[in-house]
């Protein structure tokens, strides 16, 4: 497999004031045809990474190539190979939905007839035909996002960048968009998706890189990342009382790998030990145990283990 995106030692400092080091040496390789998730909290550097790859941000140091084209050397040429759905609704408010698609095609050199045909094809494909004459301000968030994806792929790019595509969407629109993204994989489009939702990264991505404070912490398939946690079960204990000494007590229970203080209680990582739950509950009861949530490790667990903090706060 060959790389669709290659990022080496990427550093970005925004001039400020105050100056911000948004990326502190990022290395990434996204393979052709892959759906790649960039997972990290707000301010991690996801948008900056996408910005460099899409010619919107100039790197301070390091290199990035997309489809073998250096992002700094020839931005107009690179833009023919990429589609971009940015974090915000950037639809042209002065143009209808259909015109957004039509003029995008014109910018990419299609003739009037080709552009009209492509716009109509996309409207049908994205079930937007009855909204063709709507203005972007009349669309719900989910529909607007669908138009943005349609516009981004209108010129048939090899690589599609989606920056937090479902942030702020209702659950139904979110699912619809997930279907669209899975459709991209079937069409052989390489997708770089950023998100701060661990379930989204997990469900959609072939591989995930976890990014925090401008650095990539790990990069692997979601399954491998979760295996790396070294536990099959995660118990979240919510306590009404204080947790003094409880972590130590829990850590001594056979099968428990780790017990660490967490928001409102303690998080226990364990092998799926038979009979583990009653012993944990018994130990925690004197501390005012209110609630126990039992789950398998998620990418959030991976993130917490790596950084000691939650993805969203």
């Amino acid at each position: 497999m060959t790389a669709a995106i290659r990022i080496e030692g990427l550093v970005k400092e925004y001039a400020g004031p105050p100056p911000v080091r948004a990326l502190g040496g990022v290395d990434l390789e996204v393979m052709k045809g892959e759906v790649f998730g960039l997972l990290g909290p707000n301010g991690a550097g996801k948008t900056t990474t996408v910005g460099v790859c899409t010619t919107r941000v100039l790197p301070t140091a390091g290199r990035a190539t997309v489809e073998g084209i250096d992002v700094v050397a020839d931005p107009p040429r690179l833009r023919r190979s990429i589609g971009v759905v940015s974090q915000y609704n950037t639809l042209d408010r002065a143009c209808t939905v259909r015109e957004n698609l039509y003029y995008h095609c014109r910018y990419f050199g299609m003739t009037g007839a080709e552009s009209a045909a492509r716009a109509d094809e996309l409207l049908a494909q994205f079930q937007l035909t009855d909204r063709a004459r709507s203005l972007p301000t009349q669309l719900s968030g989910g529909l607007a996002q669908r138009v943005q994806v349609a516009r981004a792929i209108a010129h048939r790019p090899a690589v599609l960048f989606l920056d937090e595509p479902t942030a702020g969407l209702d659950p139904q629109s979110r699912l619809a968009l997930w279907d669209l993204i899975e459709g991209m994989r079937d069409r052989g489009i390489t997708v770089l998706l950023t998100t701060h939702y661990m379930d989204e990264a997990d469900r959609l991505s072939d591989r995930v890189a976890i990014i925090d404070a401008g650095r990539v912490l790990v990069c692997d398939t979601p399954a491998a990342l979760k295996r790396q946690v070294g536990a099959e079960t995660v118990l979240e204990l919510k306590l009404a009382g204080n947790a003094d000494g409880l972590a130590e007590t829990l850590a001594r229970i056979p099968g428990v790998r780790e017990a660490v203080p967490a928001e409102g209680g303690i998080r226990v990582m364990a092998a799926s030990g038979e009979g583990l739950l009653p012993r944990v509950v018994e130990a925690a009861a004197p501390h005012g145990l209110r609630d126990v949530a039992v789950s398998e490790p998620t990418l959030e667990t991976v993130f917490i283990q790596l950084t000691g903090k939650a993805l969203r706060d």
Binding site: P75, P76, V84, N89, D92, R93, A94, N100, H104, Y107
Partner: peptide
């Protein structure tokens, strides 16, 4: 006036900035 809007609050200029043409 339109440019000030498109560069600011709405960021509408983005699709044109990402057209295959020098900035």
């Amino acid at each position: 006036l339109p440019l000030s809007m498109e560069l600011g609050a709405t960021r509408e200029i983005e699709d044109r900035v990402l057209a295959p043409i020098p900035n």
